[in-house]
Design a binder for these strands. Structure first.
Lengths: 232, 232
DNA sequence: CGATAAAGTGAGCGAAAGCTCGGGTACCAC
DNA sequence: GTGGTACCCGAGCTTTCGCTCACTTTATCG
């Protein structure tokens, strides 16, 4: 258990260089050996640095990891803010598309950290890697919904936004980190963008299935059968 | 490093009981201390069993974890298959809704394992917890799309299915494990169901933002930038 | 220059991990 | 009973972990 915050603030240039060396070595170890393979000794060795030096600048392993995550998150966030300002002049769908592709690109750049951090890690309890990004995105989306669908009551809007955040982040991660074969990345982004604008702004006409749609499905059972046992 | 596969097959009843004890102890440790806190010694102690007995039936820690995951996955899969047969008599949207709520319930029942397994784990490289479930769901969805949207070319259909799988699994996990405050679970499931049927079956009318919808957005850029071709 | 602080080193600590193995105990033929 | 097999135990091995600390080297400055 690390406790004494012994981390010293760098004052010379070489110290800053060392910090960078350590962090990029950590990212490298992460991409080569995964989160489980990330030990402070290994990082120090990979950085060509003494283990003692590592502990001079990082109070412990968790600090090191958190710093790594924070840097990636900040970088992705920077890209996002740029995309947001670029999107204000576009149509809703084009804006969403643009934002998505920027996010996908940013995540790709940080493949090592993001893939490894989807892990539990000792960070947030819920294992969210990019909370800053999600926060920013939520904020903007809230405004978007308020403008384009002011009739929604707050709870309903929140539900849609929550869902949209899940779709967005999940889609970006999937597209960037586990791209399926046979489909272009841009096609996936387009589909996601379509889905998002559809899901955010309500359209009373299509919220339920239109009766004409049904196929040779003869039986129409009870509106909803007994739900799965509550369990536990 | 575990190597010799020494795992013996149980022949007496008490052996089977022991295996169950070990597995449920593992689940308990997992929910109490997270993935990082899961050690074989701890599991054995929690099960009130010798560490040697654990290694008689599990070739190593990974085997134990994989068995745990497999059991949860199988249980969720069983629920899913039930939901699928129940859904054949329903409308598309109701069917999807039903499947989603069953999945959410199943995930909830396996909270400990699923939350911990979202972690890296030494399992699949991509950290997918329920590959069997995803496979089954993909298969059914493929049929669904083929029936309801036969005009889609295969690549386009695959893209939509891939996206839908991401949305489905992510939504279920989020709803089951990190339910947001202020919104009922059922509302989220309904929204997700709407989104899914919308996203799966193409509707030429709404693939683009309708012009009437827009608010005080003065600028409207090009109707649509180059759209990705169907790929492949 | 000499002095002081910052930066950097690495042997090695205690703890905990995964796992082994020799030896005991419960069970089921006969 | 007796033999044999399946079952179960737990001290303790080996390795690796996070981390400390006494120490040396390098930069800064009067």
């Amino acid at each position: 258990m690390s406790s004494n915050i012994r981390r010293s603030v760098p004052q010379q240039q070489r110290a800053q260089e060392m910090i960078d060396r350590i962090l990029s070595a950590a990212a490298q170890v992460l991409s080569e050996s995964g989160y489980a393979g990330l030990s402070t000794n290994r990082v120090a060795a990979a950085a060509g640095v003494s283990i003692g030096s590592l502990y001079r600048y990082f109070a412990g392993k968790n600090e090191l990891i958190e710093e790594l995550r924070a840097r990636s998150s900040a970088d992705v966030l920077a890209d996002l803010t740029g995309a947001l300002t670029a999107a204000v002049g576009m149509s809703a769908r084009d804006g969403v598309h643009h934002i998505l592709s920027v996010l996908v690109g940013a995540v790709k750049r940080h493949r090592a950290v993001t893939t490894a951090m989807i892990a539990e890690a000792p960070l947030g309890a819920h294992g969210n890697i990019l909370p800053e990004v999600e926060r920013q995105l939520t904020q903007v989306t809230r405004i978007f919904v308020a403008v384009h669908a002011p009739e929604l009551d707050p709870a309903e809007a929140d539900a849609r936004i929550h869902l949209a955040m899940g779709v967005t982040l999940n889609a970006c991660l999937r597209i960037a980190l586990e791209p399926p074969a046979g489909v272009t990345e841009d096609r996936l982004i387009s589909l996601t963008a379509d889905l998002l604008v559809l899901g955010l702004v309500p359209d009373p006409v299509r919220t339920h299935p239109d009766p004409a749609q049904s196929r040779p499905d003869p039986v129409r059972t009870r509106p909803d059968p007994v739900r799965a046992r509550p369990g536990r």
